[in-house]
Design a protein around this nucleic acid. Structure first.
Lengths: 109, 109
DNA sequence: TTCAATACCTTGTATCACAAAGTACAAAAA
DNA sequence: TTTTTGTACTTTGTGATACAAGGTATTGAA
């Protein structure tokens, strides 16, 4: 645990990654690398070793599905898409997130 | 895990409890039960088994200190207070939280 | 056919929150 | 006095999550 400030951020992120993935996939299909890029764009840095198990988890919960697609450069890609059940879950997560923000704001007063 | 919605909230809270404790103690000294009450007021429900180890952890990191105080009803209480180092950490956590909120907002667009 | 690039996956570890217990103390009740 | 009740503090075991550091497989170019 070399960098304390990084650790704070890592811990705060916990439990929010699933939410972020669902949010990203609510707009478009994507495969792992493009999801990582999207997360980077939001400054939610994540490594492959974190993302892959997470995607598998979400797929097993039937919140995501995927299809294989050939790539022009390299091996085929697994494109993930959100399911109806995933959208329901996303709605719940939106609510949970909003409550969390309210909770923190309440403690800031 | 029986209640999925609860689990979502539990996971989202992860890493934020330390932040909440420091925020609460930034205004006033408090002992465990009163901290739990404050968290309840913000709808961040937490149980003793979570809070006590957390307080000990924060104390070992020298972000908190405490003093014993007699109680009119029951055994003495451990009143915790934030240290200077704790206030520095709190400032970092404020920044981390703000960035996190921005990250999520970014993904919502 | 070897190599580099890309994509996907697995294993071991640390951290955190919770559930469910237990210990210690003080004041009221028996 | 002894027992009970209420309050406060603590510990142990479990499950979930993110990360680091590896590995496997496919493709196309050198």
């Amino acid at each position: 645990m070399e960098n304390i400030s990084e650790n704070i951020r890592t811990q705060m992120r916990k439990g929010l990654l699933e939410y972020c993935i669902l949010r990203i996939l609510s707009n478009e299909e994507a495969y792992a690398s493009s999801i990582i890029e999207a997360l980077k764009g939001a400054k939610m840095i994540v490594v492959e070793g974190t993302l892959y198990p997470l995607l598998i988890r979400l797929k097993n919960q039937q919140l995501l599905s995927y299809r294989w697609e050939e790539s022009t450069q390299g091996p085929p890609r697994k494109y993930y898409m959100i399911t109806d059940k995933g959208r329901e879950q996303l709605a719940e997560m939106d609510a949970a997130w909003n409550e969390l923000v309210e909770s923190i704001n309440h403690l800031k007063k």
